[in-house]
Computed example of a mutant assay.
Amino acid sequence: MDISKLSDFNTIALHGGFSAASRASGIPKTTLSRRLSELEEELGVRLIERGTRALRLTEEGRLLRDRSAHLIEELAEVGEEVAGHAGRPRGRLKVSVPGLFAHTALGRIVAEFVGAYPDVTVEVSVNDQFVDPIADEFDIVVRANPEPNTDLVGQCFLRDDLVFAASPRLPIPEKDGSSVPAVDITVAHDATEWMLTWNGEPRIVRPRTVLRCSSMLLVYNAVLAGAGAAIMPRWLAEPDFRTGALVDWGTVPGRRVDAWALHTSRHLTSPKVKAFVAMLMAAYDPATRQDATFLARLAERPFAR
């Protein structure tokens, strides 16, 4: 298959017609039409139905576009790297992130990224369930504590403790074995006991689930409103520990949260992916934080006040 003809086909499909494709690429309409016809003849299928006013992709055309558009973009990036332009991220960057990260720190990080790399258009999809980067065509998937996957590579940009947090209106039980109202995340396993360390002393309490949420952001807001105690990342609760809006009941023993930026090893690591991962790493690098309020500034939550 001729790569130049495939590239021309994708340009026509992207812009929806020969005239728009010609303006975008600088290639004459007659040349684009001829190359498309030659590609169709080579493949033995009709890729685009030509109407008097509009063009329409056939089923075969949609399949070819969906499977080849990302490859054409990668080839262009390889050409730029070879030509010495590896420092110029460009094109569309499609990122999948969980809701908690999307609604706290991500907005400021993405704003900084697009300001630094104006030739990149970032498309963010919010989904707490894991997605397939290959099938769903995501360049980067951000997840906490992901399952090992040999098809994915990436970097851990944040390691944090899990803590027990509660409203000051909910006093910690004074006796071992006491029951406390608990707000749980849906995906968590039900725990019969919580092992706390309060004022340097170990204490065991029994969580009694009063609310179960599919989103950690909902868990956080419910705990802030006094519904019960919950387990959450320290970075999320730390600003409220300092103001007294929440009380720190101690660190969850033996459990941590590791946030990873993942991408498929089957794709070339493009400049835009490298740049975005580098910005995540810098945002959460302790060496770049001047004081303990860094994460609080990233995660200012006006909706929770």
Rank of each mutant, 00 (worst) to 15 (best):
V252P: 10
I3R: 06
K5H: 11
P286V: 00
P271Y: 01
V153D: 04
E41D: 12
D8H: 08
H70A: 14
F303R: 07
A259D: 06
D136E: 15
A166T: 07
L47E: 04
E40V: 10
A165N: 07
L63F: 08
F276T: 08
A296D: 15
N199R: 15
V210I: 12
K29M: 13
V252H: 09
L55F: 06
T192S: 09
D285R: 11
V141L: 09
R297F: 05
L100R: 08
A283R: 13
R289H: 14
T269H: 02
P202A: 13
P202Q: 11
D132M: 10
T293Y: 10
S270G: 02
I185M: 09
V223K: 07
G107A: 15
L262Y: 12
P28Q: 12
K272W: 05
I72N: 07
L268W: 13
N145L: 09
T30Q: 10
E81Y: 03
A102E: 06
I185G: 00
D240K: 02
H103V: 11
C213H: 14
P286S: 06
S270L: 07
P271L: 00
M1E: 04
T192R: 02
E74F: 00
V163P: 02
G44Q: 10
Q129M: 12
V163Q: 11
M216A: 11
E193W: 03
G115N: 10
R266C: 05
R255E: 15
V183P: 05
S22H: 07
D190H: 13
E59M: 03
L170M: 08
H263M: 11
L57I: 02
E174G: 06
G99T: 14
E60G: 00
G16C: 01
F303Y: 10
A229G: 13
P253N: 06
Q155I: 00
A229L: 09
S68L: 11
A111S: 15
S37A: 05
Q290G: 11
V126K: 06
R256A: 07
L14T: 15
E147T: 10
T192G: 12
A116D: 08
V277C: 15
R88L: 14
D151T: 12
A21F: 06
I231E: 05
N10Y: 00
P148D: 08
F18C: 03
A287Y: 01
M1C: 04
V247F: 01
L63D: 05
L262S: 13
P181Q: 06
A83K: 13
S37Y: 02
H85I: 01
A54L: 09
T293M: 07
V205S: 00
S37V: 01
L224H: 04
V257H: 04
R256T: 13
L298P: 02
V210N: 07
N199C: 04
A229W: 05
R305H: 10
N199P: 00
T121D: 01
L196V: 01
V153I: 14
L262A: 11
E42Y: 08
